[in-house]
Write a protein that binds this DNA or RNA. Structure first.
Length: 268
DNA sequence: CTTGTCTTTCCTGCTT
DNA sequence: TAAGCAGGAAAGACAA
């Protein structure tokens, strides 16, 4: 996997990344938003897995499609693999959304930029830029969770040299939700851009891609219907057990509590 | 088979 | 209005 300059990542995550709802004047903001996003490394063939997921989330946001409606884990691949998918592959792994994704990547491959035309958001067939207009799929087709992933399996609980010396990666079977979250935070190289530390020493963190994390958690639990809504309920149960502490007034922000172990840089 | 833990699912109401 | 948050209630999964 290719490395992305951290400065580029940081700027993407902190300044250009964010839900579209932050920008009430969506249409006006969008063009600048997307052009900023894709202003670097615009050749999808050279994207890392991280950039593939960034692109996925962006397309979903731009088209105002619920991120939970596609299986992010099915796109556990780098840009080279992504570009090798044909139209049918996109439809197979993402249902009707695959159509949008295919168009996006096709345009990126040819121009290196993803131009968002607001009029295109309606996705009228007659203005379809899909190069395979004869390809048909059942109207109203949606993602079928039983469809297997094209991508190789990925473990969300990897080992990494950044872990504290006494941290031993837990058995995936026995990993609880908070440990799963912690392991994502401790392994940004393997699960980049999903959750970010807000205050490393205080144990404050924020979900950047809540639905993507929920999908990953669901995959781990073999539950394709997991959502952030349900994941967050489980997170709230941790308050009482002091595994997490409340962070008032901030959406998607949590803080590790006194009973959470293994997240500190210098644990013991 | 029973029990306890840890979610998962659903829901109502509230907040941003 | 959408997305999150707060918890109650109840069911499910699973290990001891």
């Amino acid at each position: 996997m290719s490395m992305i300059p951290s400065t580029a990542l940081d700027s993407q995550l902190t300044s250009t990344w964010g839900p579209a709802s932050l920008y009430p004047d969506g249409a006006l903001v969008m063009s600048g938003y997307t052009s900023r996003l894709w202003s670097h490394d615009s050749q999808p063939q050279f994207w890392s897995k991280y950039q593939v997921w960034e692109w996925l989330q962006q397309v979903m946001d731009i088209h105002q499609i619920d991120a939970s409606s596609i299986p992010f884990q099915n796109f556990d691949m780098d840009g080279h693999q992504l570009c090798s998918l044909n139209y049918h592959d996109f439809i197979r792994v993402a249902g009707s959304v695959g159509h949008i994704l295919y168009n996006s990547i096709a345009e990126l491959k040819s121009s290196g930029q993803y131009h968002v035309d607001i009029g295109q958001l309606e996705l009228k067939p007659e203005t379809d830029i899909c190069p395979f207009p004869d390809v048909s799929y059942p109207p109203g087709e949606i993602y079928d969770p039983s469809i297997h992933s094209l991508a190789p399996d990925v473990s969300p609980t990897p080992s990494s040299p950044v872990l504290s010396p006494d941290f031993v990666p837990t058995d995936p079977r026995g990993t609880h939700l908070w440990e799963f979250i912690r392991d994502i935070l401790l392994n940004p190289e393997r699960n980049p851009g999903l959750i970010k530390w807000e205050d490393r020493t205080e144990g404050v963190f924020r979900f950047l891609k809540s639905e993507a994390v929920a999908q990953l958690w669901g995959k781990k639990k073999n539950n394709s219907s997991m959502t952030y809504e349900k994941l967050s309920r489980a997170m709230r149960y941790y308050y009482k057990r002091e595994i997490l502490e409340r962070v008032d007034g901030r959406r998607l922000v949590y803080k590790f509590g006194r009973n959470a172990r293994g997240w500190r840089e210098t644990e013991k």
